[in-house]
Each structure stands twice: as C-alpha cells, then as structure tokens.
Simulated scan of single mutants.
Amino acid sequence: MYKSGNSVMSYLNPDKSISNPRNAKKIFKQIWKWTKILMFLFIIISMLWGCVQMYQSDYMVNQVIDATGNKVYSPGVSFEIVIKSLGDVGEKNHMITSENGIFSEYAYFSITNWGEAWTKTSSPFYGFFVYPMAFVLSGFIKLFSGTLNPELTTHAQYIYGIATFFGIFFTVIIVRTITLGFSWKSQKNQSKMQQMQLKQSDIQAKYKDKKDPASKQKQQQEIMALHKKEGISPMSSFAGSFASMPFLFAIYSVIRSTSALKIASVGEISLIEQPWQQITSGNYVYLALLAAYLPLQILSMLLPTILQYIKQKSVTLTEAQRKARKKQLIMQLVMMVVFIFVVTTVASGVCIYWIVSSTYQICQTLGFHFYNQKHIKTGNRERERRLRQQEKFIR
C-alpha cells in the first residue's frame, strides 16, 4: 500500500513536487552554479578589457626626459588616480614634449572619486578593481603616515616610504584572503588534486593510441567518473587559479597611476620605476628587489610539487604518471621564467607586492599541507579505533 504522503497523485501534482526539499536544493544548486559561471565570465571579460585599456594613451603614465637626460616616470603626467576623499591633492606637472619640432604639454587625465572611475573610463575593471584597490592602499598609507602629501624632507619621505610598504603588505593580506575564499576548496584539496592528476594521466595513456569517437567518449566518461569519485570539480582548480588575476593586473595599474604611490620611495627604491631599467642605468640597489623576489617566487611555485614528492617518495609511479609529473614540473619552470622576465619590466611597487604575495602563498601552502596531514592522521586513528572495536566485538 502507498503511504498517504506518497500517493500517485502527489507525484503527478507539480505544485507539491516543487515544494519537495530535494527539488528546491537542486534548483538552488543550479542557480548558484550559473551564478558562479556568470561571475567568472564577468571577471575574465572585465580583466581583458582593462588590460587592453591600460595600454591606451589616455591610461598610461608617460616617461619624460629629466635634467640628466634619463627617461623617468613623472608623477602628474597623463593618467592619475587622486583619492580626494582621503585628502590627496595630486599635482599636475607642466612637462613639455617635442615631436617633429612641435612643442606641446603632456596630457593629464585624472580620476578623483569612484563615480569618475566608472564615467571617465566606462570600464568595470577600473570601477570594480582598480579604484577600490587604490582607495584601500591609499587609506593604509594615510593611516600609517598621517598624510598622502608628504613633505620633501628626508625624514618625511622615509616615514612615508615605510607607511607605503606596510600599506602594500596589508592590501596583499586583504586581497589574498578574498581570493582564498574563491579557491578554498581547491587549496584544501590540493594534494588530492595532484593525486587525481596522476590517476588521470593513466586514463589518458590508456586511450593514447585510440582516436575513434567511441574511445574518446569512453575516456571522457572515465575522467568524469574519477572527478566524481574524488569529489573534485574540474572547474574548481581552474577558477581558483584565475581568482587572483584581476587583482594582479589591478595592482599593476594602481602602482603606476595612483598619485599617493607614484611619489613614494621605499628607501632608495622608487615604486614607479622599473627594476631592470634602473639596474642597467647603474642603480644597483634595485638588485635587492630581485634578490628577495626570485627565491620567494620560485619556492611558492615549486613548494606544492616538493611536498608531493616527499609524500610520494615511497610510492611507485607508473610510466604515465612519471611523464605527467615531469610535464607538470616543466610547465612550472616555464612559468617561473615568465614571471622573472615580467617582474624586471614592471614597476618596483608591483615587485614588492609580489614579494609579499609569494610569502603569503608559501605560508598558505604549508598551512593547508599540515592541515591535510593532520586530517589524514586523525582519519587513520579513527579507522584503527573502529577496527579494534570490531575485533573486540568478534571475540
């Protein structure tokens, strides 16, 4: 007999089926899934839009020739973000340029509030990422130094430089904490994902020489079944890796365009200048940036692989798994070379941002590693306890 709550008519009644908690949960999951997809697409599109926009003439900080004949970035020339709500006044420099014998003044394009970040740029990149980051960073600088318009004395410039460094430090903490929220699951399951990639390489090797549609479909089904078994979404790692990209491009624009940062120097290092350009000009103090950045960046990128090697030291890998691991290592090395090249050509302030960010990444990787190891040990102890109880029950 059917229960009164599960009659045939109740299944045929659409109103009651909608009120089913399981159906409501499925609908919510679908809504949340598409919301995340749309958010991800918006972030990617706005980031690409902003990257192209940063290299348009109206949004660039121009290089000028100083009194010694060297090319330098001049505050108050072309694009500039001036946070007036925090007391920043900015300063336009009347720099003259000559082209084909015609003299003209460098352009000046300023944004003074969040509304102008939208209306003057017509860009979600500057509205959602660049101006808010500039505001937060400038706010920290004012908190620590008391002003965004420091005097020209050596002591005032020194205090302002230290405040700028700590402003960058705390901005990194905020940004990385936000991005960690998007990549929490992938970071938490990082070791499991690395294991899954090795298992996936075995499946791919199994169908390596089979090119027919049926084999390709079966390979895809086995890979999807592996993801489902491990409880890991293939999009989670992809989305997690891209979560920090808009902030990375935004800080590049913030450092070179925000008035409060364009005038800042940490010691003898000007935040707006490019390290390699300064090194080749004889300012070897900028080597300190590379000396700090390179080992931290290399360690932050290789640490997950190193920890995986240690964990799987006693495990015998298949030929496909060894090839997959080697390929993964080569990709990491290529990425490191790219990052090393990029960091020498961006503003020194961005380099400082990456130094702090790499340190954060190292701590985050180690934190999740020890958390997972503790979780595994706890699970093993629990299984051993249950086995002992079963043995006692059998006896």
Rank of each mutant, 00 (worst) to 15 (best):
M224R: 12
K229V: 09
K229Y: 14
S233H: 05
P234M: 11
M235K: 11
M235V: 13
S237Q: 12
G240F: 06
S241N: 09
S244H: 11
P246D: 05
I251R: 01
Y252R: 12
R256A: 08
T258Y: 00
A260F: 05
L261V: 01
L261F: 04
S265Y: 03
V266Q: 03
S270N: 07
L271R: 00
E273D: 13
Q274S: 03
Q277V: 07
S281R: 08
G282E: 02
N283C: 13
V285F: 06
L287W: 02
A288M: 09
L289D: 01
L290E: 02
A291N: 03
Y293D: 09
L296S: 08
L299E: 07
L299W: 05
L299P: 03
M301I: 10
L302D: 08
L303F: 13
T305K: 13
Q308E: 10
K311E: 12
K313H: 14
S314L: 10
S314P: 08
V315G: 08
L317T: 08
A320T: 08
Q321S: 01
R322E: 15
R325H: 14
R325Q: 12
R325I: 14
K327G: 13
L329T: 15
I330E: 10
I330Q: 11
I330C: 09
L333P: 06
V338E: 04
V338P: 05
V338I: 11
V338Y: 05
F339H: 13
T345K: 13
V346C: 04
V346H: 07
